[in-house]
Amino acid sequence: MSKAPTNVDVTSKAESVTTKMRKVPSDKPFIFGLAFIFSLYLLLILGMLVADANYTSFADIAKTLENPNIQYSLKITMLSCFIATILSIIVAVPTGYLLARFRFPGKAALDALLDIPIILPPLVIGLSLLILFHKFAIFGTSIEEWCVIIFTNIYSFFTGKAPDFSVGVTYKVPAIILAQFSVSCAFAVRTMRNTFDQMSPRQEQVAMTLGCNRSQAFWLIAVPGAWRGILTAAALAWARALGEFGPILIFAGTTRGRTEVLSTSVFLEISIGNLEGAVAVSMIMVAIALAVLFLVRLIDGRKGGLYDIN
């Protein structure tokens, strides 16, 4: 029969455990290492911004903002980015949900296909859109011509007269939106797919046992539950649309006062040798982007992280 341990046995065991404890190296070098790498990248970004800011002044920015072409460009930028973001979210939320929740044949191939706008060079996206709209015919008519026919008929139906302005997509404002949407939507889809992947399907399953069909479970449970992901996807799509240049250049052109957005304004200002103006427009873009992205972070409200660095 074994003897019950006495207090003395327990103490000596505890002591032997204490003597075996090894000294663990400090975590500080690791944290400093992380902070150092982060700082290097941050320095590069801040360096570029400071260099730009030094090259221009508030007076230059104010003067640039008084330019009617830049005012038009700013207006079209805000409008096109907003519409491209809304369209991206309308496509990304159901697509992300489909990819995250369902299995179907060819899913891996389709999933890879969705990344094409992210991988392809921006100029190629623009060129592809141009070829699609002008060289790809449906019943002998190009998509561009179909768009003109459909819009003209809708306009005539509601107003009783033919449109007295130029109708079409290519080299017009709709081309800017489509070019921005083509790229920004891919980023939004990827974000929404990750969001739904990380959300447990249990809430939706419970909703289905309570009487919901899949559609109701999606709209009433999954979508409201994914609001942070939707916000992030919208911010990413908006930022991507704001910075889009290559596809717009090819598909919408850079006609002053017509198809000009802030990113192409920078290009136009450089092309006429007005570097100060180009930098001033860039600073306006930085200010708008920072304001919107900061607002999104505020609405999100998450601080993130687990540990305080003391």
């Binding site: 249990r202 399953q205 419970v206 046992t209 009487g211 919901c212 069909n213 409201p224 609001w227």
Partner: peptide, 19 residues
């Protein structure tokens, strides 16, 4: 389908609707 069975389900992770 689950909606047609009239079964109440309480999963292990409770799965409350956060909103």
């Amino acid at each position: 389908r689950p909606a047609e069975r009239n079964i109440g389900f309480l999963p292990q992770d409770i799965a409350l609707f956060e909103h």
